[in-house]
Design a protein around this nucleic acid. Structure first.
Lengths: 358, 358
DNA sequence: GTCAAGTGAGAAAAGGTTTTCTCATACAAT
DNA sequence: ATTGTATGAGAAAACCTTTTCTCACTTGAC
């Protein structure tokens, strides 16, 4: 006991001198300091702090207490070097606006922060070279996994992630063979919307949507046809307010009965449509119900009246993607395949019917 | 020579066996593999790759070539452990929408990717506990620095970053004493807007803006008064379209001459104002010029007519913040203080006058 | 033919942590 | 009194790089 104590008291002094001479960063507390202060060896300190190994309860407690007192925090780099886990993942996105990335990111972070995992965000703007640089940088930093996300379900990121030696999960972007991919169930979301319009008594439901080469446009239109039948046309265009505006002009210029509901491909189109209807003196929701898609707050909530719309639950999508990449990183088995997450109907005022609780 | 060569040829075999026995992750190529393949020692390999030390040109080239061929990439964790630089920084934000964070992030990333630096993004929603967790996680991971950003110039993040042992830079959020802070020059931006309205011949310029307790609101209003005089009132409200709408109602209900220009505190207010004017049959920009603030594409570009507005150059702000935190991390001296970055006028159609090049 | 200087390359330590192995002590059982 | 078995704790190796120090060899000069 005496010998050990003497060593313990001797050590800090040597250490201090060593530090001063080397001129290294002062104040960085390592497990060395903890061991010295507690009068134990480094290995004992480590085992005490990690609740591993055999040792007296009193010793363990003392080490823990002292570590807390002097503010010891283990160096994740050193730990990662040994354990091959950096508790770090990369999020790769080509969505510059952040419309889709931010909710996904929030979900990922939310799910992983409890596990001590931090997230590198890399925004590549469809630039393959930039993407490669970011991927390489992340791999060098030994990320435990990568989540790829984008702004479109049916497009790949401009970089090949298929043969990395870290797990990759795709969220809201096209994945590779045998990968795990999370996406929204646009078909179900569209059905939700059209069924809601039917529920509140609408019969002549038109569909104004984006470009027909978007996979999600086709899926939503498919569900629309299935539920609403073919009584009203589908108008394909672009993802902008002005298209929504123009589409309403087209519809109302046609002879014959007008639609009593508009199912729009996204909130921007819906907003344009609502504006056009107001300008024509058509009352929303009294005369016509309008429903959007995306639940992009900044658009949906600022429309007059606020838009009833379909939320793709991107945060939940991110959460699941995060947990999945973590599982893969820890070697737990995960079934490959595409997982569709259900959408949710957000009821505001643009449809009439039940109004939301305020 | 002979001896050395024999050793070199012997080594890879031992190493291979070692790897297989240990069962460590296969395929991870370390400098060991490079050295073996090139028939040199680890130290020589390292020096060759880093262009340091003395050695024959032929040897250096051979090592480099082989490293490239077998796809060697140095482990950043190991390197960081030694060099005390992780080539990693943290970006802390309380801006959930990403309106401000994303451009700033893009600028930071843009500036730092060339230096091999990756960025941890941590979105804390004004939750002090969550903020602390994220900061601790980043410090554990030995970030070289932290950039704090937010959605408001005159508010602090809910976490104290003042006594960290890594450099901290503030961008678009209130900093601490003796820190480096980057912010937009809202006064200059407002002057730009009002002067432009004057240039195109407007004389009765009203100012519709956000809540008066915002620092930037007061700065913009100050510049407005300075340039436009006090002929028209300043209407304080909230940052929403509906307030812009309502403010126009108020202005046009008043007796007497109406304004011929509206300087709005942000693009959402401007959009609401434009909509209200259209509904009243007032022509924009023929009768009234409207100018916004923020250049938030999704709002400014979708307004009819598209908004002339003031851009705060947040990407440039992020770029400078990134370079600054890097300089601090490398020990280069940086003068503390608040740096105001100039805003830029973006001319679209809502003001008339010179129209933008299409 | 000896010495000095220069050149090329390897050995070893360091960075902070975890983990395995070994050792010393104490105690119970024979 | 001797052996056997827990128990507590330390020594050392490992993770992958970089850097400093040292060593062996060559060359040119005297």
């Amino acid at each position: 006991m005496t010998e050990r104590l003497v060593k313990a008291f001797l050590k800090p002094i040597q250490k201090e001198e060593g530090l001063n001479i080397s001129g290294g960063k002062r104040g960085r507390i390592t497990i060395h300091e903890v061991a010295s202060a507690a009068g134990v060896s480094i290995s004992t300190a480590s085992k005490a702090l990690n609740d591993t190994g055999r040792m007296g309860a009193e010793t363990r407690e003392r080490v823990k207490r002292i570590a807390g007192e002097i503010g010891y925090r283990p160096n994740a780099l050193a730990r990662g070097l040994l354990s091959k886990r950096s508790f770090t993942i990369g999020l790769l996105t080509n969505d510059t606006y952040g419309r889709f990335t931010l909710p996904v990111m929030a979900g990922i972070s939310d799910a992983l922060v409890d596990h001590g995992v931090s997230v590198f965000l890399c925004a590549i703007e469809d630039d393959p070279a930039l993407a490669q640089i970011h991927v390489d940088a992340m791999l060098d930093k030994q990320v435990d996994g990568i989540i790829a996300t984008g702004k479109r379900l049916d497009r790949r990121l401009p970089v090949d992630l298929s043969n990395l030696h870290v797990p990759v999960v795709y969220a809201f972007t096209e994945g590779t063979q045998n990968s795990v991919t999370f996406r929204s169930d646009d078909e179900q979301g569209a059905r939700l919307a059209v069924e809601w319009l039917a529920t509140i008594g609408r019969r002549r439901i038109a569909h104004i949507t984006g470009p027909g080469d978007f996979f999600s446009v086709r899926e939503r239109a498919g569900a629309y046809h299935q539920v609403a039948g073919h009584r009203e046309p589908v108008l394909y265009g672009v993802w902008s307010e002005s298209w929504g505006h123009e589409a309403v002009e087209q519809l109302w210029k046609r002879p014959g009965e007008k639609p009593d509901a508009l199912f729009c491909g996204n909130d921007q189109i819906a907003r344009g449509a609502v504006d056009a209807l107001r300008e024509r003196g058509v009352k929303v929701p009294q005369d016509v119900s309008v429903i959007g898609f995306d639940n992009w707050e900044i658009v949906a909530a600022q429309t007059r009246p606020p838009l009833t719309t379909v939320d793709m639950e991107l945060k939940e999508l991110g959460r699941q993607a995060g947990l999945t990449v973590l599982a893969l990183a820890e070697g737990r088995p995960v079934e490959p395949g595409v997982r569709k997450l259900p959408c949710r109907l957000v009821i505001r005022r643009s449809c009439g019917g039940r109004t939301p609780p305020e």
